[in-house]
Design a protein around this nucleic acid. Structure first.
Length: 305
RNA sequence: GGCGUCGUAGCUCAGUUGGUAGAGCAGAGGACUGAAAAUCCUUGUGUCACUGGUUCAAUUCCAGUCGAUGCCA
């Protein structure tokens, strides 16, 4: 292995709007290193205001990877991200002692830190067929199909969640083997240290910030950004808070005020889901988001070891 | 000022022909392996405005008070 075990990946996680971007930049500056983003929506260069991508000014303060590196027309997934992010980290470690991974997408963070099981990439046509089955015959059709293909997974999976069922069926059909046989769920050891830091704030304060940030997004021109993307509203990348609500307004399904309120609500819920995800980590140290000195002190001790 | 209507969960409201109450939304908790800002699951006790009266029993009936609102002056 090229990367020595004395290199360290600092991982910054936390709910949306907690202050991850600013923290990551400070760390990158302090330790003269680069930032790897793990935000599944900031990958797309067409999405800026609505996903709170780092501004040009922020981007100029530190080297960022995986910001605006994709188009909404690209198909992408966690597996590709895992491969590319690890390559990127390797590259950074050739010249730096550490790197900063920052983002709110828990699954993507996990992919980098622990790896994910080897599975085949989805086939577009097959996926469409399965979607069609669900659309025409409903979730019970998915259940009975999966029961035939993979009874083991049937006992574990949330049978009310169509996406889980569809993916499992998809894997079974492409490989001819049960989906559960691929789910070894084994951690892939990494050739670098990982230090995880969680940023948190009082719930009420976080929600105030989220609400306020949505208003700022509108002032910055979110409406125009979304209008420009209206033709592509069916793309997965645009099934995103801040966009889907305004699409509904543009289709006269609600007023603009209602759409804005909905963006705020959905952003709060997103933050809540992120917290649920990150709370289960037992290797994370939590800090008040604005307590920079405490975080730096903690890191200095961690990095000496 | 007079007359009417209303005052029930954080919000909008339903309801109890008198036996202390329930929906939607918001909120909370959880799950999560190639679509993840996605997708899915669970979750409703609140001085029924206040004070008194009638009653075995009042949030429900009666009176008064306060507040909101409409009409008339």
């Amino acid at each position: 292995m090229k990367t020595a075990k004395n290199k360290t990946l600092i991982v910054i996680v936390g709910p949306t709007a907690v202050g991850k971007t600013a923290m990551a930049i400070k760390l990158a500056q302090q330790f003269s290193t680069e930032i790897i983003s793990a935000d599944s929506r900031q990958f797309y260069r067409e999405l800026k205001i609505g996903v709170a991508s780092p501004s040009l000014e922020e981007l100029s303060l530190a080297t960022h990877h995986f910001i605006g590196n994709l188009s909404i027309h690209d198909t992408y997934n966690v597996s590709k991200y895992e491969t590319e992010a690890l390559q990127c980290i390797d590259e950074i470690f050739k010249t730096k002692e550490m790197a900063v991974l920052v983002g709110g997408s828990g699954l993507y963070i996990d992919a980098v830190c622990k790896g994910i099981d080897e599975l085949p990439d989805p086939e577009e046509e097959l996926r469409e067929n399965i979607k069609h089955l669900y659309a025409t015959e409903g979730i019970t059709a998915l259940r009975s199909q999966l029961r035939l293909l993979d009874p083991v997974y049937c006992n574990e999976v949330d049978l009310a969640n169509p996406k889980r069922l569809m993916r499992a069926i998809e894997v079974c059909l492409t490989t001819g083997k049960p989906y559960s046989s691929f789910r070894v769920n084994q951690q892939t050891p990494r050739e670098f240290n990982i230090v995880k830091i969680g940023l948190s704030r009082e719930r009420e304060e976080l929600y105030d910030t989220i609400n306020h940030r949505v208003d700022l997004m509108l002032e910055m021109g979110l409406l125009d950004e979304v209008k420009g993307l209206f033709p592509y509203k069916e793309l997965n990348a645009l099934n995103t808070v801040g966009y889907k609500e305004i699409f509904a307004y543009l289709e006269n399904e609600c007023s603009l005020a209602e759409a804005i309120e909905k963006i705020k609500t959905n952003s709060r819920r997103y933050a809540k889901r992120q917290l649920t995800w990150f709370r289960r980590y037992d290797d994370i140290t939590w800090f008040e988001a604005n307590n920079h000195t405490e975080i730096f002190d903690y890191l200095k001790i961690k990095l000496i070891k």
